[in-house]
Amino acid sequence: MPTVELTYREALRRALREEMARDENVYMMGEDIAIYGGAFGVSLGLLEEFGPERIKDTPLSESVIVGAALGSALTGMRPVAEIMFMDFITIGMDQLINQAAKIHYMYGGKACVPMVLRTPGGSGTGAAAQHSQSLEGLLCHIPGLKVVMPSCPYDALGLLKSSIRDNNPVVFVEHKLLYSGRELVPEKEYLVPLGKSEVKREGTDLTLVALSVMVVRALKAADKLAQEGISVEIIDPRTLVPLDLEAIINSVKKTHRLLIVHEACKRGGFGAEILSQVEESDAFDYLDVPIRRLAGSNIPIPYSPGLEKGAVPQEDDILGAARKLVG
């Protein structure tokens, strides 16, 4: 199968390009996405290709970006709205949570809102507390929203295409530190379905469920752990809602140990949800030790580099937590 090397950023761009070429109802809007190409360059070049009607630069107005995406989705379009930083979804929260998420149910299943909200989350760029949050936990709490968090170019491409074709509001959470990561992906068109996790590395001693950039750190840690004789199985849920719990359960039944790693604050984070769901499943009987969570500190993301790194799990933290769980 012919492949091509793409960055995560390029993979997202290819997904957008393919879906816009495929369906004239797909269009993009957001702040500085047109001539600037988006704050992280994802949509660079699409203005030239698709024109200003379909690559719309908006005023700095997150509420109406989300609400107008909703309104156009409700009337037959498939908008992809970009919110420049995940922190800013809070500005459009009424339209996302009270409106978009609820319309299908509230209207008795008689209308749907096929929209995608792309937004980069996460820390590591020195942008501090208002540009570094991982707010996916807030969104997963809301019935009616789907939440997608790809960790690599292959998934970013296939999942974005599936998200655009989905008939629900999908929040598509990218990660700033992943944009330049490279990977070979098929030249031929492909999709990655929502609600399907992937085993990123097979192992026998410990199941490690990691989200977004933590998958990359977990893979590195797993290489080192392998040298110590610890075999780690890494599962990337890829979509948090819907969650492919089955894959996690099956892995836990095999390894008897579960470590969950995410960047978001530990308190109320999605790791607590995964932990609970596994405990409530028949996998509980297979556990040799209690499930552990490794997650961000319950603090705003600080600025100074050392503090910023210390606020969220790093490779060493994953190594430590894994050793403790297996030892």
Partner: peptide, 23 residues
């Protein structure tokens, strides 16, 4: 396109319908 329980909640939605009409 619906009544709305949030005061002002329908205003951006109307803009979205306007986008559809235009596009």
């Amino acid at each position: 396109l619906g009544a709305n329980g949030v005061v002002g909640g329908g205003i951006p939605i109307a803009c979205g319908a306007g986008i559809t009409i235009k596009m």
